[in-house]
């Protein structure tokens, strides 16, 4: 079984923001293409660490994780592989957002 750990603050940015690449240098679309797509394609388990970032805008998390479903990834497969980790309870709401956006995303958006 292959496992990959993505620490957003260390591996991507401490200031993730925006939906597409025209919205800024640390957008949800860039995070998806650079980290999530390869991780979900090549691994059985994907651990995403949320700590170290001073807040996630919903446009970023929706584009990154909901966008996976729109790109053709099966939402049940994503949910089975994905584990979201954080040390501080301040990140609970973002975890709930991510799971919600994956469940709510549809291919025809």
């Amino acid at each position: 079984m292959t496992v990959i750990i993505i620490d957003i603050a260390k591996d991507f940015s401490k200031y993730p923001s925006g939906r597409t690449q025209e919205d800024g240098p640390a957008s949800g679309a860039l995070f998806r293409e650079k980290h999530l797509v390869p991780a979900f394609t090549n691994n059985d388990k994907v651990i995403v660490k949320l700590d170290g970032v001073k807040g996630y805008p919903s446009s970023f998390t929706e584009e990154a994780f909901g966008g996976l479903v729109r790109e053709g990834f099966d939402k049940n497969d994503i949910l089975a592989k994905l584990t979201i980790e954080f040390e501080s309870n301040a990140y609970e709401g973002y975890r709930d957002d991510i799971l919600l956006y994956i469940k709510d995303a549809t291919m025809d958006e």
Partner: peptide, 20 residues
């Protein structure tokens, strides 16, 4: 309180937040 704050955050920072 936490649920409502997250609801407000999703309302504010969702959709086109970050777009010009």
């Amino acid at each position: 309180i936490s649920k409502k704050i997250n609801e407000l955050r999703r309302t504010v920072t969702g959709s086109n937040f970050g777009k010009s």
